[in-house]
Design a protein around this nucleic acid. Sequence first.
DNA 1: TCTGGGGTCCTAGGACCC
DNA 2: TCTGGGGTCCTAGGACCC
Length: 425
Amino acid sequence: MKSVFALVDCNNFYASCETLFRPDLKGRPIVVLSNNDGCVVARSKEAKALGIKMGIPAFELKPLLEKNVLLAFSSNYALYADISARVMSTLELLAPAVEVYSIDEAFLDLTGVSHCMDLEEFGHSVRKTISQNIGMTVCVGIAPTKTLSKLANFAAKKWHKAGGVVDLTDKARQRKLMALLPVGEVWGIGSKLSARLNKLGIQTVLDLADASPAFIKQQCSVVESRIVAELNGESCLALEQVAPTKKQIVSSRAFGERITSKEMMHEAIAEYISRACQKLRKEQQQAKQLTVFIRTSPFSDRQRDPYYANSITTALTHPTSDTRDFLAVASKLLETIWKDGYRYAKAGVMLSDFYDEGVYQVDLFEPAPPAYQSKALMTVIDTINAKTGSKVWFASQGASQAWSMKRAMLSPQYTTKWTDLPVVS
DNA sequence: TCTGGGGTCCTAGGACCC
DNA sequence: TCTGGGGTCCTAGGACCC
């Protein structure tokens, strides 16, 4: 059976979430900033038209913000995650199989049902339903492979006369589109590979599609040869309905204020450990390896503000998901990489080497795992924090957290917090 | 005088994605 | 003054084993 995939992608997702409950902002240039109000991560159509580039630091926007030409928002992940969940559950009703690929996009597998419907019509009905139920605008790209559906989606976004839907199941249409796009537009071809392929005489997506997979494999790797097959309509990437278990968990943040004292850094690391362990328990995993890293800003003037970055990884004696185990080790690790006299801008921790709870083979010569009732206590903490919004914490995380991130322009949590519910008067 | 071959595992680094 | 966070996969090279 010929495979058919649809890629549904929300337009300017974070920016659109911010305007959902603020109809007065429709048609205005707005941007959403990264954590710590650092740089631009999303822009409304109007902000793009102003020439605001993705990823530029927030301070460059100051003149526009002061003149009230532009409005900026701190990232409000509680809001975005909730809107995303609504979009995804609506898609579940519309398609037989859905893979949630990221917070704002999903692949639909239409393979079994494509013969009994008009695909373009289906795309428009998805758009209409999401718009009516949630108020979010999406674009739909339809094609025989995931890689081609990504290209179709790109076309649907870029060419307005398409009306937000592009059906790329036709071979001739595929080739026509591929001839127009530079090879860097392909999903999985970034800037480095793009430059390398250009040197080999491959400029357009069509050039890559017509290249020999063996040649591409030899020049790059199997991943890129698979992309060539996908561009030729041979589906190599299957729909993954069940998210695979994670292999690592990272928790890191840039600080709102630079950290210069070791005590503060201990607090910050303890905070990140606590977040990471909470995620780990949610995955029902235990980890045996821990990495701690700290660094100063890579952007500062090196004369005035010298650069230092370091990290250290260690294996615990046994896999665990108990926050206290990691707090103890992390504190020791930090002591080994900490250096006085620097202005630290960011730090983080990483958990890796995961085991399912209870399957670890204990080494005869290892010390026995501690006997305290770890799981019960952690469950209580997680349950309380889920209900109250993190009211219980370990003393080492610190009570004031003077270093915590800046979110000066945060919008209300319209859909996830009773006190923030929008009021209609 | 002559010094193999094949395999696995781990890690660091590089590339990509949203 | 001020520049995000969280992931995945692949490859090459070294260590180690028989």
